[in-house]
Nucleic acid binder design. Structure first.
Lengths: 211, 211
DNA sequence: TATAGGAACGAACACTTGTTCGTGTCAACT
DNA sequence: AGTTGACACGAACAAGTGTTCGTTCCTATA
C-alpha cells in the first residue's frame, strides 16, 4: 500500500486531534482552514483517498459525518465502575446500594475488553494484607460482580460467618462442605460447612496501581 | 432543581445513545424524528432548558454542536498501551522497539487516572508463576515504564545476569550490592552485586482479568 | 514534445441544519 | 373571566456544510 501524502497524514492527524478536543467531528472547512488549503474540494479529494484506505469512514448526506476507523481517539468501550468502599479481612463488604448513582464518590474506568461482561459490577479498594494468598495486595482495587451463588472453581468474595471475615478464594462445593482454595498454589485450602459461608460476589478483575 | 420533563429526559437519553452509536452528535432534526416531535423549535426549546441546567453544552453556529456535560459517553483520558510480548522468569523481556507503531498486535486501554504518567509505557503478559512473590499471577498484564535506572524502593523489572532470569522486585542500592525485595512481605530479599543486574523498566501497574 | 494521471484550485450549487417568530394549548393562579 | 408562564406547533429563513465541475499545475512516461 502506497504511503499517505504529507497532506493526507496531516488531515488524519487533525481529525484525530479535533475529535479529542471537541466531541464532534470537524467539517471539511474546518480542515481546510486549519491546514491552509485553498479549496474544500481538495479536502474532499483527500478524504476520499483516506476513505478508500478505510482509515476513516464518511457518512454521506450528513454534516460532520467523519468517523475514524482506527478509533484510537474515537469512541471506546469504556465502563465506569463505582468504587463503593473497602474490603478488608475483618469487615463485611459494602453492599452495592445504588449501582446507578453515576455521580458516586469514585469510579474506575476500564475498557470492556478486559471484562467478560459489565453488568452488576462494583469495585472495592483492598485494605490490609489479608488477601496476599489470592495475590492481592494492600491498595489494590478488586472488581466484583454482585451475585450470591457461583460455579465450582470461580473466585468469589465470601463472608465466613463463624470467623467473621471476608476472603477471596476459589470456591468448590463438596457435598455438605465447601472448599476455599487460595489462588496461591503453595497454600492450603480451607474447608468449612456450606452454611457457614455467604457469597458476596465474583471476582472479575484486579487492578494495581504501583506507587 | 426542578425535575426534567419526560420529553427533556427522553432527549437527553437519545443524545447519549446516539453519541454511543455514532461518533458524532445528532442534529435537532434527528432528535425530532426519533421522538416524534412535530417541530424543530420544540427540540430547540427543550435543548435550551437542558443547556441552562448545564446538562449539555451547545456550540452555536455549528451543526451538531451538542456536547454532553456529564460526558459519561464523552471523551475519556484513555491511553492505549501496546502489549509487546511476554515476561517470564527465564527470558529477557522484549525491548519496546517501535512504541509508536499504533497498529501493533494488541493494546490495553487504561484510564490515565490509574497512571502517574503515560510516557514510555509498555505492557507485557506474564507467563508462569515465577512472580507470585510480587503478587503477580500467570496471565496478568504488567505495565512498565522503560527506564534503566531507578530510585530506591521502586519496583522494577530486573535482568539478573548470572541467574539469567527476569524478576520483578523492589530495588534498593546498598553500596556495592543491591537488595531485591519481594513485594510479598513474608519472603526474603535477594542480595547481589550491583553490576549483576540490569534494570529493564519500572513497574507502573498490574491488571488481572480473572477467567 | 506529447500525453496521462495525480493533486490542487476556485466557484457555484444544493442539501443539511440551527434559528426565529407568530401562534396555539393548557394548567395554575388572581 | 382574565392573566401568566411553561410547553408545543409549523413554517420560513439564514447560516453551515458537502458536492460537483471545469480548470490548472506538475511529474512521470512514451
Amino acid at each position: 500500500m502506497k504511503d499517505l501524502s504529507r497532506r493526507q497524514r496531516a488531515i488524519l492527524d487533525f481529525i484525530e486531534g479535533f475529535l479529542r478536543e471537541n466531541d464532534y467531528p470537524p467539517t471539511i472547512r474546518d480542515i481546510q482552514r486549519e491546514l491552509g488549503i485553498s479549496s474544500t474540494s481538495v479536502v474532499d479529494y483527500n478524504l476520499k483517498v483516506l476513505e478508500e484506505r478505510s482509515l476513516i469512514r464518511r457518512n454521506r448526506n450528513i454534516s460532520r459525518g467523519i468517523e475514524l476507523v482506527g478509533r484510537s481517539s474515537g469512541r471506546h468501550n469504556i465502563v465506569a465502575i463505582p468504587v463503593i468502599g473497602q474490603i478488608a479481612a475483618g469487615l463485611p463488604i459494602p453492599v452495592p446500594g445504588d449501582l446507578e448513582g453515576s455521580d458516586a464518590a469514585e469510579t474506575i474506568e476500564l475498557s470492556t475488553d478486559l471484562l467478560p461482561e459489565t453488568r452488576d459490577l462494583f469495585a472495592l479498594r483492598v485494605k490490609g494484607h489479608s488477601m496476599v494468598d489470592a495475590l492481592i495486595n494492600d491498595g489494590d482495587i478488586v472488581l466484583l460482580r454482585h451475585q450470591e451463588t457461583c460455579e465450582n472453581g470461580e473466585t468469589v468474595a465470601v463472608w465466613i460467618k463463624d470467623a467473621k471475615e471476608t476472603t477471596l478464594k476459589r470456591f468448590y462445593h463438596e457435598g455438605e462442605r465447601v472448599r476455599l482454595q487460595p489462588a496461591n498454589v503453595t497454600m492450603e485450602p480451607i474447608y468449612t460447612p456450606a452454611d457457614n459461608v455467604e457469597i458476596q460476589g465474583k471476582l472479575v478483575s484486579v487492578v494495581r496501581a504501583v506507587v
